[in-house]
Design a protein around this nucleic acid. Structure first.
Length: 527
RNA sequence: GGCCCGUUCGUUUAGAGGCAGGACACCAGGUUCUCAACCUGGCGACGUGGGUUCGAUUCCCGCACGGGUCACCA
């Protein structure tokens, strides 16, 4: 039997990090077993423009490298795959047929209770301190009865006629044996008064139509499983295996991570740091419109737009509620697929930890060869308007050297804007960090040393790292100063700030002319 | 409130009836032209009360705390 798993996003306009984790586990499980992973679009509730609200989700998966074998096409306009359509809004006839079958088999009934009547029953149960269970007083057991109720002007829904005794028992691949009393289950509505069908019915019908073998989903759905089993068994389906994953919790809390609570998360220092760093980069790209509502670390776009590596994000998410053993943390795609197992999913929720995610990104980035970093970072330089499009042919070699000189400082691709922007601006456009300038260049002593060192730089030949360093050493000796007395001054004068790649790298990369011009300008500004 | 679930360093995890291990973070030292990175070391956890046992963080029961779920939402 081929393993088939699915992830079922609602077209909400964004891809939530917790959803990605669920999708990832589905994807890994399918890939490991040589099976299929599919996307089903839960848009039974959607009013408008599904394709538009779906696009960010599909783009997110594509960026992450979570590919789907069946589901919507890349543009979200149509379905692709043998069991489609994969949009619930287009599968109404399948659901209607299922409702009819359940009615025919006496496993569901037409119900004509009004919301008010139900409310009365509910409140009475509450008053008597017992669990509410619908009396089925307005249940129509025959067409005549239904006609009678309808004659009274009532509107009918279809409810499941659930068992009222015994237990629903099933094995969960993560949680083990699960038991629920049937008499605690409500006669859930499966078809609305307007004739449309509800999620639980749709989900079960689709899973069977799509030949889903393993339903791997968030724990929120655990309590829904008995009614879904009831539907599936009633329709004669083969039950899928179930696996319920713990939810992803907030940073520093055990509550479920939610996009709506973003303002609260920003009070968390580490979360805020991650966010601020991202915002800074995105603003350099000229996106002034960003707000925490649409751009934040709970949403996958954040990581893509800031220049994280998809592998790092995936690697981190994989370990949110799963582990291989007591030490292995770094996994390549192939290793993830090889080692993943539902048995090792934890039962307790795991908090999203911005610091740990950052550490994964750091480690992954260190492993990316310069050659691969170049195109990644070039895109950011171009988006920020620092390099023209198409890029001039000398940019490649130059950027390669810049990236090498920057080393591990570039944590995300967008960091290139922070660390290397000064390489790409005109000498007379260089912006100075005012604080650094006042501290390092403005003082008369610094100013004088810079003047003298400028003369040295004018004669260094060739204008390269080693001669530059040798010239610096000679200068220190001649002046009887320590390197700290001059090097920061030079750095701020030519780069505009006090942090960056090694100074000799900066100088040689800029070239003598640019360096001299920049020092000249700094000296003028200091007077 | 009913039902269901969970609880190991700050966070994430490993673990077995017999020394509680790793990672991130943090702290200290080293290295360094800044910032990173890197190296060495350190701090630091089994929610609680009973029971079973020679011995319980591990098995059992209660409690506490945290969470999920109880829609004509998905």
């Amino acid at each position: 039997m081929t393993v088939r798993t699915r992830f079922a996003p609602s077209p909400t306009g964004y891809l939530h990090i917790g959803g990605v984790r669920t999708a990832l586990f589905n994807w890994l499980f399918a890939r490991q077993h040589g099976g299929q992973f599919l996307l089903r679009i839960d848009d039974t509730d959607a009013e408008r423009n599904v394709a538009q609200a779906l696009q960010p989700i599909l783009d997110g998966f594509k960026w992450l490298g979570i590919d789907w074998d069946e589901g919507p096409t890349d543009d979200g306009q149509e379905s692709r795959g043998p069991y489609g359509p994969y949009f619930q809004s287009q599968r109404g006839d399948r659901y209607q047929a299922a409702v009819k079958a359940l009615l025919d088999r006496g496993l569901a009934y037409r119900d004509y209770a009004t919301p008010e009547e139900l409310k009365v029953e509910r409140e009475r149960a509450e008053k008597e301190k017992r669990a509410f269970l619908y009396s089925r007083r307005w249940m129509a057991e025959s067409d005549e009865q239904a006609a009678k109720f309808e004659g009274e002007g009532r509107k009918g829904v279809v409810r499941l006629k659930l068992h009222r005794e015994g237990k629903c028992i099933f094995d969960d691949l993560v949680r083990g044996r699960c038991e629920f009393d049937w008499d605690k289950e409500q006669d859930h509505v499966i078809q609305r008064a307007d004739g449309t069908c509800l999620y639980h019915l749709a989900s079960v019908v689709d899973d069977d139509d799509f030949r889903i073998t393993h339903v791997i989903r968030a724990i929120e759905h655990l309590a829904n499983t008995p009614r879904q089993i009831f539907i599936a068994e009633g329709l004669g389906y083969t039950l899928p295996k179930y696996a319920h994953l713990p939810y992803v919790a907030e940073p520093g809390s055990s509550q479920k991570l939610s996009k709506r609570k973003i303002a609260q998360y920003l009070k968390n220092q580490e979360f805020k740091r991650l966010y601020d760093h991202g915002i800074e980069i995105v603003q350099r790209l000229g996106r002034g419109d960003v707000s925490a509502e649409t751009f934040n670390p709970v949403i996958v776009d954040f990581y893509r737009d800031v220049g994280y590596l998809a592998d790092a994000v995936i690697n981190y998410l994989m370990l949110l509620g799963w582990s291989l053993d007591d030490k292995t943390e770094d996994f390549s795609r192939a290793e993830m697929i090889q080692h993943f197992s539902l048995q090792r999913v934890t039962k307790a929720p795991a908090s999203f930890d911005p610091k740990k995610l950052w550490a994964f990104q750091d480690r992954h980035m260190q492993r990316v060869p310069t050659k691969q970093k170049v195109p990644l970072m070039l895109r950011f330089l171009q988006k920020a308007g620092l390099v023209s499009e198409p890029a001039p042919c000398d940019v490649g070699p130059k950027l390669t050297r810049i990236i090498e000189a920057s080393g591990d400082r570039l944590k995300v691709a967008g960091d290139i804007l922070q660390y290397a922007d000064f390489f790409f601006v005109a000498d007379d456009q260089l912006a100075y960090d005012e604080k650094d300038f006042q501290k390092r260049v403005a003082p008369p002593q610094s100013h004088d040393l810079l003047c003298k060192f400028k003369e040295v730089l004018a004669t260094v030949e060739p204008f390269d790292n080693e001669p530059l360093e040798a010239a610096m050493q000679q200068f220190l000796q001649d002046e009887g100063i320590k390197i700290g007395d001059i090097i920061h001054t030079v750095r701020v004068a030519v780069t505009g700030k006090s942090v960056g790649p090694g100074l000799y790298d900066c100088l040689s990369l800029l070239g003598r002319e640019a360096v001299l011009r920049r020092i000249e300008r700094a000296l003028e500004k200091a007077q």
